[in-house]
Simulated scan of single mutants.
Amino acid sequence: MHQILFYIGDWPIRSFGVMLSLGILGGLLVAFLVARAQGRYAEEVLDLAFYAILGGLVGARLWEVVFSWEYYGNHLLEIPAIWNGGISVQGSVLGGLLAVIWYCRKRNIAIWPMMDTLAPGVLVGQAIGRLGCFLNGCCFGIPHVHLGVIYPAGTDAYYAFGSQPLFPAVLFEAAWDVLVLIVLLALLKRKPFPGFIALSYFILYSVGRFTLEFWRGDSLRTFMNLKAAQVSSVATILVSLALMYYLYNLFPKKDKNLIYSTGQNNSRR
């Protein structure tokens, strides 16, 4: 793993930034292809991208700052330094989600069908971004002999545990993202109601994140000795299940059949 890939003059090109950029581009491409395959929202996805990316980056950083306020409260000037790492996937999803909702309301676009279109791209972005976390030596796991990876000096992982083999939690999370992506793409044209794909993403990702947090070595513990990401994952699952029940009963049966057969519904819900 290499934190710095190469230099342009004296400017280091960091692997985390490169993978983050590739994740954004890859996610946008997949969302665009899904929109074009469905015959709707292709132009809107490109137009929305700037706001969703900005919201995701701001949310990712703010989430990290809030849950690490013990440090950032004494280092206020480091809060904007996103290039030094310290961003949260869950924060990026929340920030991006708020940007999507704002954009859809502004443009009078149906929110749930748009979120269904974007969900596969979000997973692609997360999977690639997690590879950047691995190369950067952050978001590391607990000591693990059989499935451990030894991180080099200079990484957060080495600073925390030295030369012990650590469980590569982010690689397993990237693999889980790919698996969830395959499931959602298979269900995309057979969704029973608008919002099903997006809510399935929230549920399945949160299940994987909750589980893998048991092997993470860098997470804060909060309620009932659970980690912050686990608490937010449980909350996400419960809210998503409640919304699934609500949306299933909101749409009449004939609308469900139409969506199942065409994969489209342009009514605003």
Rank of each mutant, 00 (worst) to 15 (best):
T211M: 14
A35C: 04
G263F: 02
Y151F: 14
A174F: 07
S163P: 06
G162I: 09
L54W: 04
A153E: 15
G132N: 08
A60Y: 00
V34C: 12
I79T: 13
S92N: 08
R268L: 13
I237Q: 07
Q126E: 13
L62K: 08
L241Y: 05
P152Q: 07
A31P: 01
V100G: 04
M114I: 03
L185D: 00
T117K: 03
E64T: 15
E64V: 14
L185R: 08
Y260W: 12
Y260V: 13
A169C: 02
P143W: 09
I24F: 08
D156T: 02
E78P: 06
S233P: 00
V65M: 01
F193V: 00
L220H: 11
F193K: 05
E44R: 13
I203W: 10
L188N: 10
R105P: 00
L22V: 10
V93K: 09
V66S: 09
I259N: 11
G162S: 11
I111H: 01
A229T: 13
S261Q: 15
R61N: 03
I8K: 09
H2E: 13
L98M: 11
A99R: 03
A186W: 12
Q230S: 01
V180W: 09
A160V: 08
A127I: 01
L135N: 04
P143D: 08
I237H: 07
F134T: 05
Y260R: 15
A169P: 00
P192N: 11
V124Q: 07
I53Q: 02
Y71M: 04
G23F: 09
F196N: 06
A81P: 04
A198K: 07
V180T: 06
G132D: 03
G195T: 04
R105N: 09
N266F: 13
S88L: 13
I128E: 06
Q230I: 06
L54E: 01
G9L: 11
F251K: 14
A37V: 03
G17L: 04
Y41Q: 10
R221E: 10
P113W: 00
G121C: 03
L188C: 07
P152G: 03
F16Q: 10
G162D: 09
Y7L: 11
S206M: 12
L241H: 09
F214Q: 10
L226H: 05
G195V: 03
L247K: 05
G132H: 08
I128V: 14
A198C: 11
L94M: 14
S21F: 09
K191P: 00
N84S: 14
I4E: 09
L28Y: 01
K227V: 02
F202N: 09
L220D: 11
L226M: 14
E213S: 02
Y151Q: 10
L212W: 00
L77F: 12
A60H: 00
H144Y: 10
E173A: 13
L62S: 11
F67W: 14
Q230Y: 07
V30N: 08
V66I: 15
G208E: 03
L243H: 06
T211F: 12
V178E: 11
V183Q: 06
D218V: 03
A198I: 04
W63P: 01
D47C: 11
I8G: 00
P80C: 03
L181Y: 11
I197E: 00
V45K: 01
W63M: 15
G195E: 04
V124L: 10
R209A: 06
L185V: 01
A229S: 14
V66K: 07
L5R: 06
L212N: 01
L188M: 15
K227N: 04
